[in-house]
């Protein structure tokens, strides 16, 4: 067994276990932290799959951005409380049933489809990727999408500020 394979399975294990932990724990804060582990595990898998830039972005955006936001959200929505930030659980039976049922179907579909045996899979040349090549692609073929995504981010930013911030009347009221 190659060392890369061991690392690969280790990452898979980290991802899976932390994800399961998220599902099993009641504490939101714990699940947020477990999410970090999941993201990190996935980033590792991405690296092994030759998508270094995606992995880095994953860590930057998710761990550095979204998780911070989530933690802030947790803190903002539990102000003044000293107890654990537990979430209540419902739909337990149906939720698990649907999830496992769906997983069974997906797993059965994956195994039936047998992607690994397909021609284009086996014939593919897995040349190592280059971030430069990616950058060229983004700035040429996908430049429109890139710009749109930028605008989307801007709008989301403004929208988030507008929603979470004080309205004008509230501002005047505060003054």
């Amino acid at each position: 067994m190659e060392i890369a394979n061991i690392i690969f399975y280790a990452f898979i294990g980290i991802t899976l276990i932390s994800a399961l932990f998220i599902m099993l724990t009641k504490n939101i804060l714990y699940s947020a932290f477990a999410l970090i582990a999941t993201f990190l595990g996935m980033a590792g898998i991405f690296v092994l799959l030759g998508a270094e830039f995606v992995a880095i972005t994953q860590i930057l955006v998710y761990v550095g951005g979204i998780l911070i936001l989530i933690v802030f959200g947790i803190m903002l929505t539990n102000r003044g409380k000293t107890t654990k930030v537990d979430t209540k659980i419902y739909h337990k039976f149906y939720g698990i049933l649907i999830a496992t049922g769906f997983f069974y179907l997906l797993a059965r579909g994956i195994s039936t489809a047998d992607f690994g045996g397909m021609a284009w899979m086996t014939n593919s040349n897995s040349s190592p990727s280059s971030i430069r090549h990616l950058g060229m692609k983004v700035m040429t073929d996908y430049v429109l999408v890139f710009e749109v995504i930028g605008i989307l981010l801007l709008i989301a930013l403004i929208g988030a500020i507008r929603i979470a911030g004080h309205t004008r009347e509230e501002v005047e009221h505060v003054d």
């Binding site: 739909h91 149906y94 939720g95 649907i98 049922g101 769906f102 179907l105």
Partner: peptide
């Protein structure tokens, strides 16, 4: 969501 997923299944 549950209903939608159940029907999807």
């Amino acid at each position: 969501i549950m209903a939608a997923m159940a029907f999807l299944i």
